[in-house]
Design a protein around this nucleic acid. Structure first.
Length: 568
RNA sequence: CGGGGUGUAGCUCAGUAUGGUUAGAGUACUUGGUUUGGGACCAAGGGGCCGAAGGUUCGAGUCCUUUCACCCCGACCA
C-alpha cells in the first residue's frame, strides 16, 4: 500500500474520552473510530489486524478439526424463549420486531442457534463428535460500555460449540480446545495465563478463562508463584492454612460488648486473632421468582467472595441490604451469630465446620459469645466454599504462594453438559437406540477484544508496538525526502520487490518531513521501518526495529537481504 | 440502574460566575513561498444552527425549563 493513497487518519491528540492506552493509540493511529457508545468503526488498519487474528484462529481450528459456519446475526426470539434465556439475559438482549411484528434479538452468543442448527440434523452417535464454530459480530447492550474495543457493545467473537455422545469425549475435546487456544495466543505473541473460572449464569462446569496479563485488566487473578495454578478471584481456592494462630482459652460464656460491631473491634476487644471470630455477612439473594435475605458466616480473617456466595445459595445475584431490613426480620446488625438465630437462611464457609474457640454475635444488642464450639450446629446446616483467596495464601496444588495479578479475559471455555441440549430437545440415538441429549462444550474467544489486548500489553509512550503475527503491515518503507530521486528510486524498487515476495509492506511516499513520518511510524507501530534518507549518499539505509526501538545502518544494496533475514 | 461530569470548527479546548460588537486559540485542511533526519517557518484562505426544543429579554454560547448524547465512579457483565 502506498501511504499517499492510504486511509490512515492519524491524530496528534487523543480523543478526550479515551483512558486506556489501547483505546488512545488505536484511535490516534487510525485503527478505530467511535460511532456511538460502545460502537466502533474499524478503519483499514484495524480491519487488517482483525483479519490477521482471525486467520490464526481459523488455522488452529482447522488443525483441531473444527468446522467453520456462519449463523445469522438476527435470531428469532422464540429460540430464546425455548431455552429460557430471554429472561435471564435481560436488557443486554437488543430486541426488535420485523414488519410482521415478529420478535427478534441480535445475537449476543449463539448457543441456542447452534443447538437449533444441529438438532434433528445430527441424530446418531455415529455422527459425533462434532465441533462447529463461527467468527461473527455479536451485540450485547452493555449497561456500561467502556475502554474502546475492550468492552464494546458490538464486537467480534469466535464462538465454538462441540457435541458429544459422552462426557468422556467432551473432556477430550475440551483439552484439545484448551491446547488450541493456547497455541493461538502464543502465535499472537501474548503473555497469558489459563485460569480456573466461575462458569457464570450459563451453567456448566470445567470452566477456564484465557487471560492476557495486563495492569489494566478488569479481572483479578490469583496465581501461584511456583506452579501453573491460576484462578479468577471469583473461583480461586487455597491450601489449608499453614499456620493456625494460637487459640484463645475461654469457656463458653456471654460477654457484654457495647458498640463492638466490626471484626477489627471485636478482635481488639478480646485480644484475639480474627481467625477465631465469626463474620456474618447478610445479603439479599435475588432468584428468578422472588428473593430472601441470606446470612453468610465465615471466619473473621476471611472475606466473602460474592460469586461463590451467589452460587452457594443458587441466586441470580446478591444485593446489599441495609440495617433496617435486617432489623425488620429480627436480626441484630453487628451482633449476628449462628446460635439462637432468627429464622433466616444461612450458609457457612467450609472452614468453620466444627471450629472451636470461636467468638460470635449473640443476636442481641451489645453482646457476644466466646468459647463457641461450632460443632453444635445442626446436621442440616449448609456449608459451601465462601472465602476469597488472598495474596499470601498457599497454592492449592503445590506449596507455592498465591499473588494477585490483573488479566484481560480474551477466551472462555467450558463444559456445558446438557444444559442447552436438554431444554431445547436436541437428542441423538445412542448405540442402544436410546435417545440422549447431546453433551456439549463451548469455546469463546474475543477477537476484537484481542486487538485491544495486544496493544494493552505491547505499547510504549510513542504508540503501538504490534507483534509480528498481529501487525497490519510488517514492513514500512519510509522515504525521507521524496524529492530526492535516488531515495525515491530505491524506495520504489524495494517496495515492488517486497510486494513480489509477498511481504506485507506499506510505502511511505508522502510529501512530509522526516520527523513527521517517524512519529507516524512509531504511533502506528509497524514492526520494521526501512529509512531511506540522507545516509543513502554514503550508500546506507537504516532499519528501525519498533520493538527494540533501535536503528541500525545497513548497506543499501543489501537491504533486502537484511529484511528477509529479519523476517526469518 | 444509582452518583458525578461534559456537549462551542475534523480534533483538543478557551469564552458561560456578572447576557451586549462580526464567537476565539492551537492543531488539522487549502494556496503560494522558504525549508528538508524527529510532528518546520512565513503569508493568505476555507471551515460553526455554540447538542436539540421551548421560554425569559430590546438582545442569549452565556439565564430558566425540558430533552438527547457522550464520559467517569459504582452496580452489572455467557
Amino acid at each position: 500500500m502506498r501511504m499517499s493513497r492510504a486511509f490512515i487518519p492519524t491524530e496528534k491528540e487523543a480523543p478526550k474520552d479515551a483512558v486506556l492506552s489501547s483505546h488512545i493509540y488505536l484511535a490516534r493511529a487510525g485503527f478505530i473510530a467511535q460511532v456511538a457508545s460502545g460502537l466502533y468503526n474499524l478503519l483499514p488498519l484495524g480491519k487488517r489486524v482483525l483479519k490477521k487474528i482471525e486467520r490464526v484462529i481459523n488455522e488452529e481450528m482447522e488443525h483441531a478439526g473444527a468446522q467453520e459456519v456462519e449463523l445469522s446475526f438476527v435470531t428469532p426470539a422464540e429460540l430464546w424463549e425455548e431455552s429460557g434465556r430471554i429472561h435471564k439475559f435481560g436488557k443486554e438482549l437488543l430486541r426488535f420486531k420485523d414488519r410482521k411484528e415478529n420478535l427478534f434479538v441480535l445475537g449476543p452468543t449463539h448457543e441456542e442457534m447452534m443447538v437449533n442448527l444441529v438438532r434433528n440434523r445430527v441424530s446418531s452417535y455415529k455422527q459425533l463428535p462434532l465441533n462447529l464454530y463461527q467468527i461473527k459480530t455479536k451485540f450485547r447492550d452493555e449497561a456500561r460500555p467502556r475502554f474502546g474495543l475492550m468492552r464494546a457493545r458490538e464486537f467480534v467473537m469466535k464462538d465454538g460449540y462441540s457435541f458429544h455422545a459422552s462426557t468422556e469425549d467432551l473432556d477430550r475435546e475440551f483439552d484439545a480446545m484448551e491446547a488450541a487456544y493456547k497455541r493461538i495466543l502464543e502465535r499472537l505473541g501474548l503473555d497469558f495465563r489459563i485460569v480456573e473460572a466461575d462458569s457464570g449464569a450459563i451453567g456448566g462446569s470445567g470452566s477456564k478463562e484465557l487471560m492476557v496479563l495486563a495492569e489494566s485488566g478488569e479481572d483479578t487473578l490469583a496465581v501461584c508463584d511456583r506452579c501453573e495454578y491460576g484462578a479468577n478471584i471469583e473461583a480461586a481456592r487455597r491450601s489449608a492454612r499453614r499456620e493456625i494462630p494460637e487459640a484463645p482459652e475461654a469457656d463458653f460464656n456471654r460477654f457484654e460488648t457495647p458498640g463492638i460491631k466490626s471484626i477489627a473491634d471485636l478482635s481488639a476487644f478480646f485480644h484475639v486473632d480474627p481467625y477465631y471470630t465469626l463474620k456474618a455477612v447478610a445479603k439479599r439473594a435475588l432468584y428468578e421468582d422472588g428473593d430472601e435475605i441470606v446470612v453468610f458466616f465465615l471466619r473473621g480473617s476471611d472475606d466473602l467472595q460474592e460469586v461463590k456466595a451467589t452460587n452457594a445459595c443458587g441466586a441470580m445475584e446478591l444485593v446489599d441490604v441495609d440495617e433496617a431490613e435486617l432489623t425488620a426480620i429480627g436480626l441484630v446488625p453487628g451482633f449476628i451469630g449462628p446460635l439462637d438465630l432468627a429464622s433466616v437462611r444461612t450458609v457457612f464457609d467450609n472452614d468453620v465446620k466444627g471450629a472451636g474457640h470461636m467468638i460470635c454475635g449473640a443476636n442481641e444488642p451489645d453482646a457476644h459469645y466466646v468459647g463457641v464450639d461450632l460443632s453444635v450446629l445442626p446436621e442440616e446446616a449448609q456449608y459451601a466454599e465462601l472465602y476469597e483467596a488472598k495474596e499470601g495464601d498457599g497454592c492449592p496444588v503445590c506449596n507455592g504462594t498465591l499473588g494477585y495479578t490483573k488479566g484481560i479475559e480474551v477466551g472462555h471455555i467450558f463444559k456445558l453438559g446438557t444444559v442447552y441440549s436438554e431444554p431445547l430437545g436436541a437428542e441423538f440415538l445412542n448405540e442402544n437406540g436410546k435417545a440422549e441429549p447431546f453433551v456439549m462444550g463451548t469455546y469463546g474467544m474475543g477477537v476484537s477484544r484481542l486487538i485491544a489486548a495486544v496493544i494493552e500489553q505491547h505499547h510504549d509512550d510513542k504508540g503501538c508496538v504490534w507483534t509480528r503475527a498481529t501487525a497490519p503491515y510488517l514492513v514500512n518503507i519510509m522515504v525521507s525526502n521524496i524529492k530526492d530521486e535516488a531515495q525515491m528510486a530505491l524506495g520504489e524498487a524495494l517496495y515492488a520487490s517486497l510486494r513480489a515476495s509477498g511481504v506485507e509492506t506499506i510505502f511511505d511516499d508522502r510529501k512530509e518531513r522526516f520527523g513527521f513520518k517517524m512519529k507516524d511510524a512509531e504511533l502506528v507501530g509497524y514492526p520494521l521501518t526501512v529509512i531511506i534518507g540522507k545516509e543513502l549518499a554514503n550508500g546506507n539505509v537504516q532499519l528501525f526495529d519498533r520493538t527494540a526501538g533501535e536503528k541500525r545502518d545497513v548497506a543499501a544494496e543489501e537491504v533486502e537481504k537484511h529484511i528477509m533475514e529479519w523476517l526469518g
